[in-house]
Design a protein around this nucleic acid. Sequence first.
DNA 1: AAACATGTTGTAATCGTTTACAGCGCGGTT
DNA 2: AACCGCGCTGTAAACGATTACAACATGTTT
Lengths: 350, 350
Amino acid sequence: MAAVPMATIRDVARQAGVSTATVSRVLSRPDLVNPETRASVVAAIETLGYTPNAAAKSLRTLRSGKVLVTVPDIANPFFSLILQGIESAAQRAGYSVLLGDTQHDDKREQQYALMLQRREADGLIFLGHRLPKAAAALVRSLPRGRAPVVNGCEFSPGLSVPSVHIDNAKASFEAVDYLYQLGHRHIGVVTGPMASPLSRDRLKGAMARANRDRTRVTVSVAGGDFSIESGIAAGDQLMSGSTPPTSIFCFNDEMAIGVVHTARQRGMRVPDDLSVVGFDDIRFAQYCDPPLTTIRQPMRELGEATVQLLLNILSGNVKDAVSVTLPHALIVRASTGAPRSRAAMSLARS
Amino acid sequence: MAAVPMATIRDVARQAGVSTATVSRVLSRPDLVNPETRASVVAAIETLGYTPNAAAKSLRTLRSGKVLVTVPDIANPFFSLILQGIESAAQRAGYSVLLGDTQHDDKREQQYALMLQRREADGLIFLGHRLPKAAAALVRSLPRGRAPVVNGCEFSPGLSVPSVHIDNAKASFEAVDYLYQLGHRHIGVVTGPMASPLSRDRLKGAMARANRDRTRVTVSVAGGDFSIESGIAAGDQLMSGSTPPTSIFCFNDEMAIGVVHTARQRGMRVPDDLSVVGFDDIRFAQYCDPPLTTIRQPMRELGEATVQLLLNILSGNVKDAVSVTLPHALIVRASTGAPRSRAAMSLARS
DNA sequence: AAACATGTTGTAATCGTTTACAGCGCGGTT
DNA sequence: AACCGCGCTGTAAACGATTACAACATGTTT
């Protein structure tokens, strides 16, 4: 395609009057070559504008310098922040990122995983919850924790693939506990798809807290898919019951925004008539009206830690890579408050 | 790294009792080989689990099957949607995406552009407004519109690089016109960085409309950087003048959300006390409170068209690739209305 | 029967690096 | 004088594919 054929290492060698081996050494182990020779090689490189061909290098060294990242949906602000963390950490370590947006589609996940076999990437970070077949084969063929495959945010003990994540069950437990402490006794929960271990863990945690006071607490569960629209639908569903919840805990911020939206459509005020808790603490959460109470995940850090995990495996000086749990935090903002009846009570009391 | 060395084309050839040339042909031009031979080769491929090595192929063919995409900030929902369009179109065409998040950093843009020289990618789509040096060199070395470099959304006639974008000046013109028609005579404008042609075009369009009625209209301009926070700052600046504007047009939705946020902090009601218009129509725009009036850009389509443009250049059967303009639309929602004085007037009148 | 087209396959050069190994010059030991 | 070690450099064999070209068998044309 290029009109002017690129200069090769041979051109540089000729120009500098040395062998290609020397040129190569100047580039990879400069200490091995005499300073004077080195200088003339560097000069030749300069004048010819030489850049080593990546394919040739990769063919010879069996390393591509790339990590493949598959994301269920880049347009989701949660994933895009993780991706940003990944990109930045990878770049810092001299790797570049091959991006695959799978749209939650199994086929595309499978397809992308083939790139590992083709050696188009040295490792795989997958952000979904399904381990693609090609990657699974690789994992099986190597000792535990040695395959260059790691998972981000979706922890699944069965996967036998290391992962970076928060303690989802604990975080959910805390969210429900917080609502309980505020006085809420009827709590709605909007989940993500149950196929995802992440959703199951969160539900488990939420139920665990509710069950601790099971005689006093009612929990209603509605299923969502992490989209704003599904939040609206789930909110509608929860609110049209005979005794609607006084608070709703959503498994991500977007669904929480949907719930707030639909509550307002019904003429309800947040948090006076309905408290809403989200999950993730995406950028918009604090600028919503009302600003959203939510569980914060350290998204960039999750991404960076995932890369670090993968790099450890790639470097080979780790016997058994192990999952990492990062801290979360409950961020209280204005979308939550005491339930009205309780608020009225305490008002009367004062 | 892999415990079991990958099967090569030679292994397949041996297993099938043919030469490597035949195996290669089965893969690339199956019609050239006898059906029976083909079957036995396919069988050998199956049993060995053979996948061609990408580096070797790329070295030989001088094509990597990758496009490099540099984005100023993936976490920005505008860019992440464009990126989604790019990814999907690229994937459909058999290309994969190398992602570079430049964080608006010149150095990183330059660094990524080197991948083109290394032939790690067949083409470059850059979403920022600076053409990296390495790419510029490539552009210069080839006839106009032949270099595999295209720009997304930032149109700059001087760049001599084809681009896909909307008509920013016209869109801004329409936004201001809409506010004028509503009765607004004092209009605030929150721009993006003036280094970006996109911002300049939008400002040009806005001023063009204002100047048409320059005796009646006042325009106040504040500079932003497309972040929510800069929207807050710009909003504060505009609103603390002696005669604050009755409406503010922001060059993206996030800054508009910032303006709405700060207006509310000041006890103003949107749209009663202040009308706000955004730009882009990101996903959250319609779920804000109030839902945001904005200029819609077809983000996915922008991304897809950018890939198409690049593919046309790569295919080589296009003499002079030319920029593409996609349609935009003014989406009227609830964040805009007549200014209070005017509203009062018309109320009095009725 | 010679010449030729067609369909199928193999041979071997090539893409641009990296790197094991050998070789050379030279000062220092024995 | 023979030997060794050290620092530096070159030779050449990979890495795993693609593809121009040749070769061969077979059938067709003249």
